[in-house]
């Protein structure tokens, strides 16, 4: 009993220590967004002495397109998340569970495409989008990104661990492959799907390089691109930069907090019946 107590104290100490290391920089960044510039520049105060919301109202008022960018980001990210979840899971499932000719080849190809750094494919991808006439459009960002090799790979690894008996039972009941997949497999994969949703959301929301090159029209900017442009112009205005950065980070954090409940132990199996 005593030993158990020591272990748990140790575990808590490590967890809390790690949490502090992680939390302090963010707290500092977020708190800075509530300070006037003079306070940030003049030295290290941690808690704002002159608390102000002015930085946020200023970001909004200086960037009249803020809500337009937000809308663009929401549309693009929503499509990306929905399409990716379905398509990546389908491919991951096929690679893990369906014995089709060429399966090994496709799996290898999906791993291989991950290994080429995007710096050399950027220009050819750009030329392809131009050929389709998709520069400066939503689909230019969405369609090329609607499947993601990383998460196909992840889903495959998840499905490898999946109870096979359930699917067999379903097929005995006369469900097709598609039926089995959508009605049996997907609901059981909630934790993995939730993780995937969070990651796709984040990568789409924070994506900077692709919108930077594809979107040349200010109306079509995503929030991240717009706020980065903003940051470039207000380079010495740390207060506004911190406010803009906080605004950029917040949606991802909320989404994560929402999906977090799917990772909690027990949801999968108790929810299954």
């Amino acid at each position: 009993m005593n030993k158990k107590r020591i272990t748990s104290i140790l575990v808590y100490t490590i967890l809390i220590g790690y949490a502090v290391i992680t939390f302090i920089p963010f707290l500092w960044a977020v708190l800075s967004s509530f300070k006037p510039l003079s306070e940030i520049v003049s030295g290290i105060t941690f808690i704002p002495e002159n608390f102000t919301l002015g930085n946020y109202t200023e970001v909004f008022s200086r960037e009249p397109l803020f809500f337009r960018w937000m809308l663009n980001s929401v549309i693009i990210t929503a499509c990306m998340v929905a399409l990716n979840i379905v398509f990546n899971s389908m491919a991951g499932y096929a690679l893990a569970r369906i014995r089709f000719a060429g399966r090994k080849f496709w799996f290898f190809l999906i791993l291989a495409v991950l290994m080429i750094p995007f710096q050399v494919t950027l220009i050819p991808s750009y030329l392809i989008l131009k050929t389709f006439g998709w520069l400066n459009t939503y689909q230019g960002l969405i369609i090329p990104g609607m499947v993601n090799a990383t998460f196909i790979f992840m889903m495959r690894q998840f499905f490898l661990n999946f109870p096979k008996e359930l699917e067999e039972a379903a097929q005995m009941d006369g469900l097709s492959r598609f039926g089995t997949f959508f009605r049996i497999v997907m609901p059981l994969a909630k934790p993995a799907l939730a993780a995937q949703a969070v990651f796709i959301f984040m990568s789409s929301w924070n994506d900077f390089m692709r919108p930077l090159i594809i979107m040349s029209d200010k109306d079509m900017f995503t929030l991240t691109l717009g706020l980065n442009t903003f940051k470039g112009q207000y380079i010495s205005y740390w207060n506004l930069i911190m406010a803009a950065s906080t605004l950029m980070t917040l949606p991802s954090l909320l989404i994560y907090a929402f999906f977090n409940r799917f990772f909690i132990k027990g949801v999968t199996f108790t929810g299954g019946k």
Binding site: F87, A91, I128, R177
Partner: peptide, 21 residues
């Protein structure tokens, strides 16, 4: 059914990733 499940992936990765590579 394997290829049916893979088709969106093959289509998208093929055009936008494999061709550039």
């Amino acid at each position: 059914s394997g290829y049916l499940f893979m088709s969106p992936t093959i289509f998208t990765l093929g055009i936008f990733v494999v061709v550039p590579i």
